[in-house]
Design a protein around this nucleic acid. Structure first.
Lengths: 127, 127, 127, 127
DNA sequence: GTGGTCTAGACCACG
DNA sequence: GTGGTCTAGACCACC
């Protein structure tokens, strides 16, 4: 069950996208699994259907899920290739994060430990 | 010289804030150094003075710089304490980044290597 | 209704910030209450929306209110912790005020009575 | 010797005005005493003569000091009457301070104790 | 010269 | 509807 923090400042649709990805990488959602319909999901999370729809559309554009008309929305298999653009974006964000971390006197070791922890958390959720 | 990507979608003032922090951690700007005046900077980056001012004000709120009315704006010494809120924010962002990275088949090792590289880049620029 | 004295020399946004805080401590505004929207408030007070926005942003930085994009701005619960910087500032201002008072032959007792009165006024407005 | 905090944000001339008043109420400066000349004072405090001059002019307007052309500037006797405008201003500032204090969970008692302390500090400096 | 405040008005993202 | 960003330009206080 994805959790939406309504006062985090982050757009709902982004939180939902991230939440779904999180459930996929952690194995809660598996390839072929059907997502809640837009209307169900919107009721579940008490948000506007348009917002859920936007998240689904963007996830579909990212090849994370696929919508079959009249059938529903399904999780796609994790791709084995990297999307250069996404990778580049991640690197850029990481670089910015490093500057902020450095400014807070967070050492490189600490930061790497946090990366490790995050990975463990994801894998640990696999059943 | 801070570079502003006018088509990145990121607000100019955030880019400027990050750019200035980058110059500070990398040693290009040292404590006590005077920043370009709001007007100079706005001319330099071809943006509105209000936008530069906004970045300066926010950096001042973060204790990164200090502005003396009628005098100018100056770099403060790097603090040695951590701001719990900022640290928490960094951890959260890192956690989200990890999910995206995992989705792109980027290994934990790879990600940690990038962290290390970013740190080296910062320190390598020290004179 | 916050009152703005347009000829007091004090910036509008500061007057608005103080006015909102006053309504909160006196119980007129309660945690969770929605503030007037930026546009409504600007119409109400006949000032520019940007000025209202500035006040709201600063109050948010002080953890007094919280704004949710596309939804509105809401009163936060009064915190139970002290912010050392704010406390220091209050002490400094009080010290300066004392000098001015002393210069006007205002006794310590009188000044303390005024403090008491101000507190009573705040609490008296509670419902 | 008045101390000017060049990075406090407060205008220099106001700091100087307050500093001189402080020296008067604490007895360091007595009625009839001669102040440093504008030029001496500006050298002493490493500030612009115009700034010192502005402070002196304003203090003269407040009947705190008096300038005799060709002679110098002298401390006037503490008046025994109150200036209604000044008193009103003090009350207003105190009222605003109370709101901020209340917001920081500072009790009425604490605030009154601080007032008492400030008064003691002033009187304690009397020789 | 410096930064600070305020206005007017445009455009965008979010829900 | 909401707030956020950006621009253009005016006026003021401080130094």
């Amino acid at each position: 069950m994805v959790f939406i923090d309504k006062s985090s400042g982050k757009p709902y649709y982004e939180q939902l996208m991230l939440g779904i990805k999180e459930e996929i990488v952690s194995g809660i959602l598996k390839p072929g699994d059907q997502l809640l319909s837009v209307r169900e999901m919107s009721r579940e999370l008490t948000m506007n259907p348009n917002t859920v729809s936007k998240a689904y559309k963007l996830l579909e554009a990212q090849d994370v899920i696929i919508t079959v008309k009249g059938k529903g929305t399904f999780v796609k298999a994790l791709t084995t290739e990297m999307d250069p653009k996404s990778v580049e974006k991640i690197q850029r964000q990481l670089s910015e994060l490093t500057i902020e971390a450095y400014y807070q006197n967070i050492s490189s070791e600490e930061l790497k430990r946090w990366v490790e922890d995050s990975y463990k958390k994801i894998k640990g959720e696999h059943t």
